[in-house]
């Protein structure tokens, strides 16, 4: 690897990272998810800073493995992947375009609550298929840590909700 131009190398890395899909929600990439926080190339070593979505998310190990594999494929031998907890990841970092991709895929995107009070009621989640606001929470917990299960009271379809976080 003999690219010494820092800016173009980092841009190349970002472009390549944008091709790695979220293992659980393959319509969006890990960069759209907001997991990759920083890319630094010093001419020898490539450092990629990521932040976990959920602390116990089993997909994080896969993120790391896939990032490493993609970077090796690009010819980077010395790759350091650092995990940081601060600032904490939030679903606000998911881009509006990515939220629309989620909705089209059938997963209701995160809805920001009216208040930060832990003891307040959760917000209304519109159905990703018909847009109805008459939906019922079936289970706060779904197939992955980041999703809850709902059904639509109008079109009667069950759907997954990407929890606001």
């Amino acid at each position: 690897m003999t690219i010494y131009d820092t800016t173009s190398t980092e841009e190349l890395v970002w472009e390549r990272l944008a091709l790695i899909p979220d293992p659980e929600v393959p319509v969006i990439s890990i960069t759209e998810l907001g997991v990759v926080r920083d890319v630094q190339w010093d001419g020898r070593q490539l450092k990629i800073v990521i932040t976990p979505t959920y602390t116990g998310c089993p997909a994080m190990q896969l993120f790391v493995a896939e990032i490493r594999a993609a970077m090796h494929e690009q010819g980077f031998d010395d790759v350091v992947i650092e995990t940081v907890y601060s600032p904490a990841w939030t679903t606000d970092w998911i881009s509006p375009e990515a939220k629309e991709k989620l909705r089209k895929y059938g997963i209701a995107p995160p809805v920001k609550g009216a208040s930060d009070d832990p003891f307040s009621e959760p917000p209304v989640v519109p159905c990703p298929r018909c847009g109805s606001e008459h939906t019922t929470l079936q289970s706060q917990f779904g197939a992955t840590a980041c999703k809850a299960l709902f059904t639509c009271d109008d079109c009667k379809e069950p759907f997954e909700y990407f929890k606001h976080f």
Binding site: T55, S86, P118, F119
Partner: peptide, 21 residues
């Protein structure tokens, strides 16, 4: 402590879901 503050911000969101349940 920035590290502890960052972790707590993350953990709080999880704790809220647990609490509601």
């Amino acid at each position: 402590d920035a590290v502890l503050a960052g972790m707590a911000t993350r953990f709080l969101k999880e704790a809220i879901y647990h609490y509601r349940h």
